[in-house]
């Protein structure tokens, strides 16, 4: 017989170890705070615990930022190419959506930051 009961258990435990290591090493850190900036200045730092809506005014108009438990996104923006809106929901620490024409940015932060600093 090729595999005995214990072998199956060892293989299962090994697979579990690999999965755990993968999650530990490659999984991002879940973010818990959203930082909203307009024209480079932080105008709001809020927790990702409750659903909220923010409206931020920039040179082109109003950018709407939607916060839901555990995630945040740019819901609406007057930028012509809508790049930050297309990024969708941000969940991991270190992720950011930038609406450059309207000078608004949304950044997710967690307990540990994936990067010390990001330059755009």
């Amino acid at each position: 017989m090729l595999l005995r009961a214990g072998d199956a258990a060892v293989l299962l435990a090994g697979t579990g170890l690999v999965v755990a290591l993968t999650l530990y090493a490659w999984g991002g850190v879940q973010g818990d705070t959203a930082v909203i900036r307009a024209a480079g200045r932080v105008i709001e730092t809020t927790s990702l615990a409750h659903a909220r809506l923010f409206s931020v005014n920039g040179p082109l108009g109003t950018t709407q930022i939607e916060i839901q438990p555990g995630r945040a996104r740019i819901a609406r923006d007057p930028s012509p190419r809508q790049l930050c809106v297309k990024q969708g929901w941000l969940t991991q620490s270190g992720q950011a959506a930038l609406c450059l024409p309207n000078q608004v940015s949304l950044e997710i932060r967690g307990r540990t930051s994936a990067y010390d600093t990001l330059g755009y």
């Binding site: 090729l2 005995r4 214990g6 060892v10």
Partner: peptide, 18 residues
């Protein structure tokens, strides 16, 4: 020393590889 009734060479090999 694992009981060979349940643990065959595959177990030993995987454990040794780890």
């Amino acid at each position: 020393h694992l009981p060979s009734r349940h643990f065959g060479p595959v177990s030993l090999s995987v454990l040794a590889a780890f």
